[in-house]
Design a protein around this nucleic acid. Structure first.
Lengths: 198, 198
DNA sequence: AATATCTCTTAACATTTGTTATCGAAGTAT
DNA sequence: ATACTTCGATAACAAATGTTAAGAGATATT
C-alpha cells in the first residue's frame, strides 16, 4: 500500500509543487486495486467512473466496430494514466472498454477526487492542464504515425517503443492497434525475419 | 478591431468566469492580423511562435512526409484555435506548417501571453486545462474515425461535418486529410454520385 | 489425460488502394 | 490575350492489404 502511494506521490510531484498537508488531504481519497489478467475494469456503454493510474501491469483500451471486431486504441503502461477522457469528464456513456492484459495494480481516481484536486490543491488546475497536454503530445504523435508511416514502419516503431511489451501481448491486439489485420501483421513479421537472415 | 476582440472575449467567457479588470489587462496583449489566401504563417523547422485564434477564414495544418508529399493534419475553422501544441508549449522546432486557405483574420497569442493568463487570471489554469481537454476530445474522435471507418465512410463523414467547407478547399488537401490519394478520392466521389442516380 | 478453445502462420485468392499517365477545365501570371 | 500552372476526372496497371481456409502449437477446461 505504502509503496503504491509513494509512487503516485512522486508522479504528482513531478508535475506540480505540492505540500505535505495537501498530500495528506489527497492520498486517502485514492483507492488501490489489483486486477487479474483479462479482467474488464470498464465496459463500453457505461460511464467511465475512474481515471486509472497504472502502478503495475498493462491495460488495453479498445472499442468494438460495426462488424463486432475489437479495435485496440491504446495500451497503458506502468506509470501512465488510462481512462476514456470524454466519458469520465463529461459523465457520458463511453464507447471504449478497458481491460487488464497483464496482472495490474491500479490506483483508481474518481471524478469527485479530480474535482477535489482542482478546488483544493494550490496547483490542482495546473496538474489537470499538464496531464491533458501530455496526453495531446502522445496522441498527436500516434495519429501522425498513422498518417505518415506504412504498416511495416508502424510495426517497426512499435517494436522499438515497446520492446518488452511486444512479446507479452497477444499479437492480434497489436495488429488492430497498428490498424492492420492479424494475418497481415504475421506477414510483415515473417518478412522482417527473412531480410534479417540474408 | 473591436469586433474581433469582442469575439475572443466571448470565446474566453464561454470557458471561464473572467472579470472586466482581467479582460482589460489581457486584451491589449492580443494582436490581430489578416492574411491572404495561401499565406504561410508558420514554417516547419521553426518554433511555433503563436497560438492562433481563427476569427475568420480557414487554416490548414500539414506536414511533409519522407517523399516530400504534404499531408494535411487538421483544418482549423472559425472560432477554433490552431497551433502546434507541443512546439508552442515546449518551444521546440515544429514538424508542421500552417497555411491560410481562405483569407483569414487571426488573433495571435504568444507564449508569454499564455503564461500571463496562467499566472494572472483567477481561472487561467482552468482555461488552459479546458482548451487542452477539448482538443483531446476532437483528436480522439478523429483518430477513432481513422481506425473504424473505411475511406468511403471517412469521406462521407467529412462531407457531413464540413458541408460548406468541402467546396472551398482544394480536393487533394481533403484527400490527404482522409489519408488517401487524390485519385482515389476522386474515384470515391464518382462512385457516390453514380449510386445516387440509380 | 483428453478435449476444446485460442493463437499464430501460411497459402491462395479477392479487393482495395496506390501509381502513372493523359486530358480538359479553371485559375494565374505575363 | 497568351501562355503557364494547378486541379480534378479517368483509365490501365501495379502493389498492398484484406479474406477465407487449413493446420500446428499452445493454453485452458473438464
Amino acid at each position: 500500500m505504502v509503496n503504491e502511494m509513494d509512487k503516485i506521490k512522486q508522479f504528482i510531484a513531478s508535475y506540480i509543487e505540492i505540500s505535505e498537508e495537501e498530500l495528506e488531504g489527497l492520498l486517502p481519497k485514492f483507492s488501490i486495486r489489483k486486477y487479474n489478467k483479462k479482467a474488464i475494469i470498464h465496459f463500453y456503454g457505461e460511464i467511465c467512473k475512474y481515471l486509472y493510474f497504472v502502478d503495475k501491469g498493462i491495460l488495453r483500451v479498445f472499442f468494438i466496430d460495426e462488424h463486432g471486431d475489437e479495435k485496440t486504441f491504446h495500451f497503458a503502461l506502468k506509470n501512465t494514466i488510462a481512462t476514456d477522457y470524454e466519458s469520465f469528464l463529461k459523465q457520458i456513456p463511453s464507447n471504449y472498454t478497458i481491460q487488464v492484459i497483464e496482472e495490474a495494480t491500479l490506483i483508481q481516481i474518481s471524478l469527485e477526487t479530480v474535482q477535489y484536486i482542482y478546488r483544493n490543491l494550490r496547483h490542482g488546475e495546473k496538474l489537470g492542464r499538464l496531464l491533458a497536454e501530455e496526453y495531446i503530445f502522445i496522441f498527436t504523435k500516434k495519429t501522425n504515425a498513422i498518417y505518415t508511416k506504412t504498416p511495416m514502419q508502424r510495426y517497426q516503431s512499435f517494436k522499438k517503443l515497446f520492446p518488452d511489451v511486444f512479446h507479452q501481448i497477444p499479437q492480434h491486439y497489436i495488429a488492430s492497434y497498428l490498424h492492420i489485420t492479424p494475418v497481415h501483421l504475421s506477414r510483415l513479421i515473417s518478412q522482417t525475419n527473412k531480410s534479417k537472415k540474408s
